[in-house]
């Protein structure tokens, strides 16, 4: 029996992470899920939010948005539109993005605009949460 998982996070711009880990928790489409070694094959869409993994007794946080996670053969592959390690997140930028999104949300007339602003707001909030957790 395998005792560890291989976690790989890829975005269109780069390979964010490729590591041996003990546990992965991810914000699934229908709620958070956790992956331990020898999990059965699993494919899920991810919400905007924080993904975390445990390796060597330490927990690491990563912000993901617009992603998918695939689990098979003790390999967890996350494809995300953007992914940032907690320590790389620019808190100031997230805060500004939050303010901008809130403003847009207040002024948005069309449904489309408000949906976009809502998504931007969620991303900003999730970034701040991830940064705070680290």
């Amino acid at each position: 029996m395998e005792k560890s998982l291989h976690l790989e996070i890829v975005t269109p711009d780069r390979l964010v992470l490729s590591e041996k880990v003990d546990y992965v928790g991810a914000p699934g489409y229908e709620g958070e899920f956790g992956i331990l070694p020898n999990h059965i094959p699993f494919l899920s869409a991810l919400n905007i939010g924080s993904l975390y993994y445990k390796a060597g007794g330490k927990t690491h946080w990563i912000f993901v948005s617009g992603g998918f996670a695939e689990v098979s053969d003790n390999k967890v592959t996350v494809l995300a539109e953007s992914a940032e390690r907690a320590e790389d997140i620019d808190l100031e930028r997230a805060r500004k993005a939050k303010e901008r999104a809130e403003q847009r949300l207040a002024q948005a007339k069309e449904k489309l605009d408000s949906a976009r602003a809502q998504a931007a707001l969620q991303r900003a909030l999730a970034r701040m949460r991830v940064r705070g957790a680290a």
Binding site: P41, F42, S44, A45
Partner: peptide
């Protein structure tokens, strides 16, 4: 391989 899909296949496709 038998995957578990979340949401169901059609829903995932709509995201993909």
């Amino acid at each position: 391989k038998e995957y578990i899909y979340e949401p169901a296949v059609e829903g995932l496709l709509a995201e993909l």
